[in-house]
């Protein structure tokens, strides 16, 4: 009997943490989203009112749009540039490994550090970036302060930070392609672009797919750079879903309303996660 209970004893701490900090908060968020509550008054059931309000909340809809804009460009650039750099660095030489570890370093540095660093580089009066672009005859820009540019600057910083991770994953996928395929292609006299299109790309396409989904999921969580650099401004042009939940929930204490926003994010992430797991189980079968 004691032996029968032993495994339960072993997984108990893990289960408590998961139930307390994953399962329960999600369920409670769902519950709260149907209520009006500001943490002071009693919770009040209001049905779908929060969601109806969301559908016509201009700021929320804008933050939703901003998030999608960010996700699209961030994923496209991270994946695309990552793949290009990986192809450029794929040969396993000391020099390439050095460049790879340089390009990966921003990824292991805190987003807070990266944001502070770029707030300095992108300073509109004394920033390095404006100095650099002056060589190309471009006038100084207010990178983080103009509504048309701020989100693009956030994307730039985000790509700079994360592209190294993509490079890493792509290089490991590229290096898994057996050598003899390259050798066969050399004997077949194939051009390098054709080789990339016909052989490399199909062979790393599972990796390409997975890294894209991981990038999408991670991009939807965009928050830190926004909070540190722009606080959602100027003119809400960098306001994102998570930032909106944060402000609504922990600054204005509209917990019910913020929970409803959380539910929207939950649905988006759940769909992506299901796609991720579905395709992952398929990939396991291939191996």
């Amino acid at each position: 009997m004691k032996r029968k209970l032993f495994p339960y004893f072993l997984v108990l701490p893990t289960m408590i943490v998961i139930i307390l900090f994953n399962v329960y908060p999600i369920l409670r968020m769902l519950y709260q989203s149907f209520h009006q509550w500001n943490m002071i008054n009693d919770m009040q059931f209001i049905g779908f009112d929060n969601f109806i309000k969301l559908a016509s909340d201009k700021v929320f809809l804008q933050s939703l749009g901003n998030t999608f804009y960010f996700v699209f460009w961030n994923v496209l650039l991270c994946t695309g540039l990552g793949l290009l750099l990986a192809v450029f660095l794929q040969k396993n030489t000391r020099f390439n490994r050095f460049l790879q570890s340089i390009s990966f370093f921003p990824y292991v540095v805190s987003l807070a550090s990266v944001s502070l660093l770029w707030s300095w580089i992108m300073n509109k009066d004394y920033g390095l970036l404006n100095y650099v672009i002056s060589f190309f005859g471009i006038t100084s820009q207010d990178w983080l302060g103009s509504p048309g540019l701020a989100m693009n600057s956030i994307i730039l910083i985000s790509v700079w930070k994360s592209v190294g991770f993509n490079v890493l994953i792509f290089i490991s996928a590229l290096q898994r392609i057996p050598k003899y395929i390259y050798e066969a292609a050399i004997l077949d006299n194939s051009g390098s672009f054709q080789f990339f299109r016909k052989i490399t790309l199909p062979m790393i396409s599972p990796t390409l797919f997975f890294i894209t989904i991981i990038n999408i999921i991670n991009s939807f969580k965009i928050f830190e750079t926004v909070q540190i650099l722009t606080r959602g401004g100027p003119l809400n042009s960098t306001r994102t879903i998570v930032y909106e939940i944060y402000e609504e929930g922990t600054l204005f204490f509209n917990v019910g309303y913020a929970s409803a926003m959380g539910v929207v994010l939950l649905v988006i992430l759940a769909i992506l996660t299901i796609i991720y797991f579905k395709t992952q189980s398929k990939r396991v079968q291939y191996q």
Partner: peptide, 11 residues
């Protein structure tokens, strides 16, 4: 797959 960005408010 459950990020803190979803759970922080209730926690």
């Amino acid at each position: 797959m459950v990020p803190g960005q979803l759970t922080f408010l209730t926690i």
